[in-house]
Nucleic acid binder design. Structure first.
Lengths: 340, 340
DNA sequence: CTGTTAGCGCCTTCAA
DNA sequence: TTGAAGGCGCTAACAG
């Protein structure tokens, strides 16, 4: 494998000259530039990224971390889509993406710190933010460039987020508009910021319409179909009547739908259902499920852009910046009694 | 950030001694080992992976490349699952995964060669193999360690594959066993090895049962729901009767189902449908769709293990090795007229 | 068992 | 406009 020295020799110049040609320095004669270029081509020379990283102490690599259990990966193209978005930007700006997948938040924290301390990455993109997230706290403390997909509930950090409060608000308002009055809510784990935010939106909508927020109508569940079904049974056991449910994730909505099937409850006439994420499954269920569509790809794009901007202009990196993306309610039969 | 020199100074030894402690050399006194360890801890020292890579000329990083259009990412957890598998093995053996996503095979080729030539990765895992795949040919030519998820139709390369021939065979035989006799086949793009293999299995099953293979019953389509629907219309236009269809991908099967809905064809009574991949969607359609389940996670695990084995024992890396994983037919209503 | 020395391949002053 | 020299942080002979 040819090195910079080989090229230098072949072109009859010094290695530093070659280095300058690579860097596109303009303080170099057109002629030697050409000569070096030819030598590079002839030798099939490609700069060694590792050596360059060592010399410049940056890697042009971004770490992307996700932390989720197997059953949550299923059926939700959020991550693949977000990654595609990040990847598109990364490619354009000549960055690479290092993937880190963990099963628990503790593992995630460990692996991320490892990546950074080993200097394998220039920055990180996180994808699941928790309330009082130790990972975020550690990264802030070690002063590591990072961007959160989601948002931090505690610290001013750079983030790109779906407007979950509004999404929860929209979903709930839609059900109200459809005539539902007793709307239950199935939340994901309470330590997830996204769960909190959607719940906030739900409450906002109710309050705005002068409908009391009944705590018994709010159920917390693991994000899984099973979790959704169980939550519905819990709601029923509590004896509070409800005629619709906002489920903070499509999987939970699927669980609610299963409950309805098991119990012979008619959707949407007796029970309206709305989910979040608009996973492809949603349009194939019976009835098809209304869901809030998230701009996953765009989230990835914006996150990567925000991070790279911070890396290339460190002065900006210090300023908090939260990008908020809109989401769109995809209305289907599960929330519309009057539809054919 | 502390370097090996700082540690050496603090422990009162030479950098090479520290290096040996890191490497876990046993030609070192227990006492200095302890002293060095303490120094490392006190300084919060973590070896710089880049510097180490440069010195040892390896990166402990594996590139994973995928090439697919946006619409194919949707709904199919194959990639996330395979990545989870690869990641689990990588973590255990202390490797990292660099992700490369491309939109076209040409782009994929370029990016992979770039990664390798820049020495960013020690090896590659490919995920879509084509007939006469230029990427595979280039990697073989440049003598780069890699493993294919899928298989090469042309060259002896190390690969981990789902047994697609058998899967196609199983799917078709199942339809025959259910009483269908005129079985059509919707293939994905013909340059994909996986398309070829599944078709082979289809033919095998027919031949084994002395049923003629009618070329007009075989249709090629882009892998998308739309492609599946169109293929069905084409089949109908050709005028060859058919009472069932094997669709080489779940999306194609969904398209076939849509055709049936549009045309008022009853599934499974008038038309049996089988798909491949068992994407989560399949159990939510009406009727639920029979599909061949792929061991995506396991494919990722085996691919990474195979690659790392080759990297750590270069003598083995030369030998061709094809791992074949079984798949399982998940039978649902779409292929069973007699089911409730 | 430990230190010295010489790279790994590139970048970046500093001089010329 | 170019070259020489030193360094990025670590490893790997070779001595001792």
């Amino acid at each position: 494998m040819a090195t910079i020295k080989d090229v230098a020799k072949k072109a009859g110049v010094s290695p530093s000259t070659v280095s300058r040609v690579i860097a596109g320095s303009n303080r170099i004669s057109q002629e030697t530039k050409e000569r070096v270029r030819r030598a590079m081509e002839q030798l099939g020379y490609v700069p060694n990224a590792i050596a360059r990283s060592l010399a410049r102490s940056n890697t042009h690599t971004i770490g992307f971390t996700m932390c989720r259990r197997a059953d949550q990966v299923f059926s939700n193209p959020f991550f693949p889509e977000a990654i595609r978005g990040m990847s598109a930007v990364a490619q354009e700006k000549d960055y690479n993406i290092l993937l880190s997948i963990s099963l628990t938040p503790e593992e995630e924290l460990k692996k991320c710190l490892q990546l950074v301390r080993e200097r394998r990455v220039d920055g990180l993109i996180l994808s699941t933010s928790r309330v009082r997230d130790p990972l975020i706290e550690a990264l802030v403390k070690e002063n590591i460039p990072f961007v959160v997909i989601g948002r931090s509930a505690d610290q001013p950090v750079r983030s790109v987020n779906n407007d979950n409060v509004k999404a929860g608000y929209q979903a709930t308002l839609h059900l109200l508009d459809q005539g539902y009055r007793h709307i239950a809510y199935i939340s994901g784990p309470q330590d997830l910021v996204v769960s909190m935010d959607r719940l906030t939106g739900y409450k906002q909508a109710l309050i705005e319409r002068d409908i009391p927020v009944v705590p018994e109508r709010i159920e917390v569940a693991e994000i899984s179909e099973e979790g959704g079904t169980q939550a519905m049974y819990h709601l029923r056991e509590k004896g509070v009547p409800f005629d619709a449910v906002v489920a903070a994730d499509d999987l939970l909505a699927l669980g609610a739908l299963r409950y309805a099937h098991e119990q012979g409850v008619h959707v949407p006439d007796e029970l309206g259902i709305v989910g979040f994420n608009d996973t492809p499954i949603m349009s194939y269920t019976h009835p098809p499920l209304t869901s809030v569509r998230i701009l996953s790809y765009q989230l990835g794009v914006e996150a990567m852009e925000l991070l790279l901007e911070g890396l290339e202009h460190p002065e900006k990196a210090q300023t908090k910046k939260e990008i908020l993306l809109p989401s769109e309610l995809i209305v289907r039969k599960s929330s519309c009694p009057d539809r054919p």
